[in-house]
Design a protein around this nucleic acid. Structure first.
Lengths: 245, 245
DNA sequence: GATTTAAATTGATTTAGGTCAATACACAGT
DNA sequence: ACTGTGTATTGACCTAAATCAATTTAAATC
């Protein structure tokens, strides 16, 4: 059974026959950005908007890849498991991110909602057909894949060669840069995920994550606010820490 | 100055006005596989074949990404450096692999020839233009990017969560599977790269790589032949080791 | 607001893999 | 064959982060 069946059923389009994209708050951040009204309509026709509760599974590694998704709100984690339960989180997705570039006939990883999540779901076959007739969209997807690969390589450097402190600071800075890229203040950053998720993303344990946060706090490098917010008082200084100067 | 300038000058097409692709031994493994005669000719028109000596640089991180490449022979390593010299090798490329999917205006990593290497070089602007008129090629590139992303995620699991032994065995098995995918015997595998390269690929030190090879050998899990060849006597058993059962 | 329950933090101890150092080996050049 | 230079291996020791084990804090649930 598909993991998605465990979740709330697709939400009926609240705009009746209207294009749901009209109300999409992340359109300009997503792959839809390159589509004109006509083409957007064609994509909307194969899309279903959905809401997923926090902690609910979205898809499971190895499952037939029947659907692709656009994350329109909330935070999603992607992860892979080893047989004995060791887990590596390969990425976090936020509003505007596309879910499903990296796969073949089966999903190559599992995905789970970290917070409440809203998604735009596309049947894969139909989506792939659209790709063949919307060259803009295919180009945009290639560009997204290219960016993801660059990020993946940075993450390999982090996992293979950085210390715990450098890993944590790199992670915080990546979130900060993401805010900047969207014309928001680079600090504070929000951490919707648990210490254990952060640990599994950075190749550490929860204890080491916690200790490292405490040490950074003690040293004045960061300030832990409530609601999972972290203030970065000196981003320059943090950048030096992240790259181990 | 471009790293490529340090290498041997481009080799004049040895086939005169003939399409050099006619003699390409890895055409069916590369992105060219999807092109018909006419389109292949168009790609060949913007291509220059080159030979790079072992250890010579091919491109440098941060440099303007003026060229893209097809590896037609030999082994290439891709890597990123931290300011203090720590190195992470993000991948090895072999005949048929495409070099340059993951980048923006500048190269996101450095590339160096491990062995003597033959390349097919494309000016990026011209290549990108060709993409817009050869939809097959763009599709193939997207599919290549997707596969690379899947591989990158596997590598994150390896770097973040596997033990030294699991890392080494996973690496050997990946090479073995590559041989199988090309209808060759899955053992022995060839290791053209140094212990230090393997270490920087797996997030280990040369000493640990060496010790782990020795332990695997002592245990009969592998046999070290000369010429950098490694025999894998029981691939089933190694697969269990690689995933930590 | 009181009561569970889960998540985060901190402490004590262990260990896998790193570091430092000394051979051993391989092969390129004479 | 001999010699030199870089690479690989092995040994002794050390340390960053993991593991094991309490607490403390925060967030649900009644």
């Amino acid at each position: 059974m598909s993991a998605i069946d465990l979740n709330k059923a697709p939400v009926p389009n609240p705009f009746g026959t209207l294009n749901p994209c009209a109300a999409c708050t992340v359109r300009d951040l997503s792959i839809c950005q390159v589509l004109n009204e006509t083409d957007l309509q064609r994509l909307a026709e194969i899309a279903t908007t959905m809401e997923i509760a926090a902690r609910a599974p979205i898809l499971d590694e190895g499952e037939d890849a029947s659907y692709l998704f656009n994350v329109t709100g909330g935070t999603v984690k992607l992860y892979k498991l080893l047989p004995d339960g060791r887990r590596q989180i390969t990425g976090f997705l936020y509003g505007g991110d596309f879910l499903g570039i990296a796969m073949n006939e089966q999903y190559a990883y599992s995905a789970e909602a970290v917070t409440g999540v809203t998604l735009c779901r596309f049947p894969r076959k139909k989506f792939e057909h659209l790709l063949t007739v919307l060259p803009n969209l295919e180009q945009r997807l290639l560009s997204a894949a290219s960016n993801e690969l660059v990020q993946a390589q940075d993450q390999m450097v982090l996992l293979g060669r950085k210390t715990a402190k450098e890993k944590i600071v790199s992670f915080l800075l990546a979130l900060s840069r993401r805010l900047e890229a969207r014309d928001k203040a680079p600090s504070p950053v929000h951490l919707p995920m648990s210490r254990s998720d952060i640990a599994d993303y950075l190749g550490l344990t929860t204890e080491t994550v916690s200790r490292t946060f405490s040490a950074l706090k003690r040293n004045g490098d960061i300030r832990l606010l409530d609601g999972g917010k972290v203030e970065l008082p000196d981003i320059e200084a943090l950048t030096e820490i992240a790259d181990g100067y």
